[in-house]
Amino acid sequence: MNASTTERWDEFMEGIWRQNPLFVMVLGLCPALAVTVSAVNALSMGLATTFVLTCSCVLVSLLRKLIPKEVRIATYIVIIATFVTVVDYLIQAISLALYDALGAFIQLIVVNCIILGRAEAHASKNPLLPTLINALGMSAGFTLGLFALGSVREILGAGAFFGVSLFGPDFQPWVVMVLPPGGFFVLGAWLLIFAAIARRKQKKLAEQGVGGQNA
């Protein structure tokens, strides 16, 4: 890997790990808690958000020199709302059952702060390629986060994974996991795990740093 590839990879991984929108920045909680009752719903929501985030950021980046800063928020919102409408129609065309399962949360992608945040903080200041990589990284991080929530909740709350029953007919599902409180329990558990790993990594780095200085 040469220097620029490493840099790009680093930029992509930023969204998945160091700046993970769900587990580190704790953004976009509304869809994260509401639609993650099954792995399929979580993944679909993640992909829908990926589409909106990537398309909006690309368009904002392409038009960044044209957009006067006085009207930038209005412009971003119009662009984001456009792609949310597109994804709304696409999901209806793909599957009405999925559309019903995701409910109002498809339209609510428009107010997902990850997307406006990315448009304002990154896409409006960077050329196309870094914007695309950053948006894809953030989307992947958010999708993985939703999937982590959705699969745990489906396995515990319905005894299934992607609709396939795992434990046979005698399994008594832990129903609270597919109810709203379950969303908070599982999110809390994942936040704990993420924070613990990050802290351990930091400690290791610090120890290595100290060791390096001594030597």
């Binding site: 038009l63 044209l66 006067p68 006085e70 412009t75 662009i79 456009t82 409408t85 129609y89």
Partner: peptide, 19 residues
Amino acid sequence: MIRTLGLIAALCGFIIVSA
């Protein structure tokens, strides 16, 4: 400002109607 907003609104309108 009006030119930019108008242009973007037209572009977005085109995308929505096509979808």
